[in-house]
Amino acid sequence: MYIEGIANPDNVQTVIQRITDIEYDQIMDSSFIGQMISDNEQSPFPQLMDSERPDRVSSALIEGKVAIVCDGSPHVLTGPTTLVEFFAAYEDYFLTWHIATAFRIIRIFAVMFSVLMTPLYVAVLTYHYHIVPGDLLGTLISSRKDIPFPPILEVLILELTIELLREAGARLPTKIGQTIGIVGGIVIGTAAVEAGLTSNVLLILVALAALASFTTPIYRIGNTIRLLRFPFIILAQMWGGLIGVVIGVMFLVTHLLRLTSLGRPFTEPLFPPRWQDLKDAFVRLPFNLQGKRPIYTSSEDQNRINLNKTKPKKGKRK
């Protein structure tokens, strides 16, 4: 689905072309299509926006994107999309722009925190005792004094526990699921600390990191973020602490730079830098500054405010 006169015909052509090329006997859900037509199937990052909210999809259409609706599926794919768009909740547009901007920045900070916090813990405790402030040193050492595992194992155990809780909660009916989350979180956490299996400092960090990873508005990228930290933890252990984490970050940045969404760069508006599009990326500026459609959709009609043109027709295609 797209809006003629706004959507770039190239994008439409790409989508149609790729969908026609699909050969598979069963398409249960739009996410099947999403995986099959994405530019790089090996990437853990979703390259098409996936939403079940009509408001999100309609606004994507108006921005000049193409939407893919699948029969029998509540999810609609829209593209081309960018990385920062995954961290924008649609509620941002319902709030005044200062508050929305603050929330977006908090969300992006949360993502970084979630990916990097536990690897940094491993890095610092395993290699870089130098950078621990003197006053914190006592706390850290005494909390780790009786723990038999090296930091890497300690972190992996706790991270896996959190993943287990999440997975168990997701499989059970909602009511029990919530209970499992709370009971498991509190009981297992405290018990692990009391038993001397993990340090309480780490417990706080892991819990915060898990919490932070749930702030992403799109579920699919939340999964990616949660799993991303495992390679980072391993790199931090194997590649020399901070250097390892930095190498990991470099690989990640390169990977993101190489990704495309329907042939458009995925990291836009950061790179290639488009100052125009920053208006709705990390910050959400007020509506009177949002007069243009995003550049990366290369929309045929760049202006959102234009009274002279006839109303564009809606075309529906699968």
Binding site: Y127, R144, G240
Partner: peptide, 29 residues
Amino acid sequence: NFKKLLIFLLLLLFLTACIKTKILDDIEL
């Protein structure tokens, strides 16, 4: 592509820098 990715991941896993660890509670500060 998949094979390459696999090789790459394995390399990442097995190429360790063999650095002596200095775990905070196992050193005499």
